[in-house]
Every structure is written in structure tokens, then in C-alpha cells.
């Protein structure tokens, strides 16, 4: 386990930017800023113009850490306190879960909650609970 510092101001600032990007995407392209839907549609696009905005959006997202480095002088921290096997198993389960659940933290947790969508509120409550249970079981029951 790695201890991390409480960063309310950076996290709030980051959250505001995430919210702002979601509003801007809706205002321009008319779409929900959901990572799951954008990625799935990028891999299986319905048309060339549908693919192109997704590609541009993803390119912008991937440029984020570099932009932060240009300003602050260091890359954002990516500390991985889990094994490679856990990354693979976890990643696979996330992929299945977000496809059946039709969304993740950004699509349901931010955009759907902001629209007061009953499905998104139910989805968000569900995954917040199962994530907390999973972390508890792994860290405090299994002791990994």
C-alpha cells in the first residue's frame, strides 16, 4: 500500500475541468463525455465522421499529462500498488462491466449524475459500493 497526500484543491480543480470538458462536448458535438462509450465507438465506429471526433477527443485526452508536465515540470504520478496479474484481471472485469453497465465513472458518475438520470445514479451507487467492498476484501481480508 502506498500512502497518498490529501489534495482537496488539486482534486477539486481537476474535477471542475472534467465537468467543464463534459459541458463543452455536449455544447459542441452533443455527446456524453463517457470514456467507455467514446472508446467503444472509436474501436467500432458507425461512420468516418463518427470515428474522427472520437479520435480527436482521445488524442486530446492522451495529451493531458504532457500539458501538465510542460506547466509543472513533472508528469502526473501514476503509482500502481497492485501486481500485473491484478491489472490484467481488473482491466478485463472493468471492460466486461462497463459494456454491460453501459458506462463508467465519467459517463454515469459525472454526466449521468449531472442529468439526474435514474440509471446513472443506480449505476454509480452500485459501482462505488462494489469497489469499496473489493478494496476492503483485498486489503483487509486477504491482506494483499
Amino acid at each position: 500500500m502506498i500512502e497518498t497526500a490529501f489534495t482537496p484543491f488539486q482534486s477539486l480543480g481537476g474535477g471542475v475541468l472534467i465537468g467543464l470538458a463534459s459541458v463543452l462536448l455536449m455544447a459542441t458535438v452533443g455527446r456524453i463525455m463517457g470514456a467507455t462509450g467514446i472508446l467503444a465507438g472509436f474501436m467500432q465506429p458507425s461512420s468516418m465522421s463518427d470515428w474522427s471526433w472520437r479520435a480527436a477527443l482521445l488524442a486530446g485526452m492522451v495529451s493531458g499529462p504532457l500539458a501538465v508536465m510542460l506547466v509543472t515540470g513533472s508528469m502526473p504520478a501514476v503509482q500502481v500498488p497492485v501486481s500485473t496479474l491484478m491489472l490484467v484481471v481488473g482491466g478485463f472485469l472493468v471492460g466486461i462491466g462497463v459494456t454491460f453497465g453501459a458506462g463508467c465513472t465519467s459517463g454515469h458518475g459525472v454526466c449521468g449524475m449531472a442529468r439526474l438520470s435514474p440509471r446513472s445514479i443506480a449505476a454509480t451507487i452500485t459501482f462505488m459500493i462494489t469497489t469499496a467492498i473489493t478494496v476492503y476484501v483485498i486489503r483487509h481480508v486477504l491482506g494483499a
Partner: peptide, 19 residues
């Protein structure tokens, strides 16, 4: 919706990354 979201949470709790 509920089963998928529950499974997403399990994966998120194992790996620590969300999409």
C-alpha cells in the same frame, strides 16, 4: 445495468484504474 456496474466496481477495486 446493475450487474455490469457491480462487476465494473470489482474490476476497479482490483486494478485501481477506470477507463
Amino acid at each position: 445495468l446493475i450487474g455490469g456496474s457491480a462487476l465494473f466496481g470489482v474490476g476497479w477495486g482490483i486494478a485501481g484504474f477506470c477507463p
